[in-house]
Amino acid sequence: MLVEIQNLRIQFRTATGVSEAVRNVSLTLGQEKLGIVGESGSGKSLTARSILRLLPSNAISTADSLTFDGIDVLRADERTLRRIRGKRAGLILQDPKFSLNPVMTAGAQIAEAWHVHRGGSRKAAEQAAIELLAQVQIRDPQRVARAYPHELSGGMGQRVMIAMMLAPDPELLIADEPTSALDATVQAEILRLIEDLVSRRGMGLILISHDLPLVSHFCDRVMVMYAGRVVEELAAAALTRARHPYTRGLLECLPALSHRQTRLPVMQRDPSWLEV
């Protein structure tokens, strides 16, 4: 197993005491595509980021076990973690505008990522950067390599980001709302690209999103989180047969294009959902 989490718990120290953000979450991930879906504040990002131990400084995370390819992440030192972060596991964030360095060309940033993790000459790194840009289906990689982030569209920026993450040839890709800032057409292209790359390279993928139908479209398995808990885990193909009222509610409250509704069903949150 690539990732194994048993009973993960994340708490935040605040002025008024301790608040629980994630409670008793367990998951295992092999070479497959897992979607984590939930609304804002459900703890989906925290759960995924805890694998890289990239949590805010006031967060306390505990778990019975939390391993990445057998390495105990919770007890690992910074040096071991650095060898995982960015090298063996890449993280793609929502807005490439904030994750790319604005004063470096796209090519230079990818070359840098390549050079840091794999060494070799500058020239080889630059060559590799252009190859990676071609791999993320950029038609004119030479031109994009010379462009600065502000000269790229949102979708193109996200491709550059993905190319950068692929440079060290990671085993796991965590994509945290990778397409929420993008248009529907671009969104579909980027997700297809990620899906394709993950399948071809035999990586594990964790796709985090608030959009349940979208995630189920691109993943094998979907984990639905509510208020820090996993309320339901199901095969993506079985989405319409979801049992938990929260999962059903998420699907039903979406306005549909295919049929007409006068009013949208509103989710009635049941306190018993918190007793999972």
Partner: peptide, 11 residues
């Protein structure tokens, strides 16, 4: 696109 990505039943 909207139907394909957003409406699981139909898809």
């Amino acid at each position: 696109l909207s139907i394909e990505l957003e409406e699981p039943e139909t898809a």
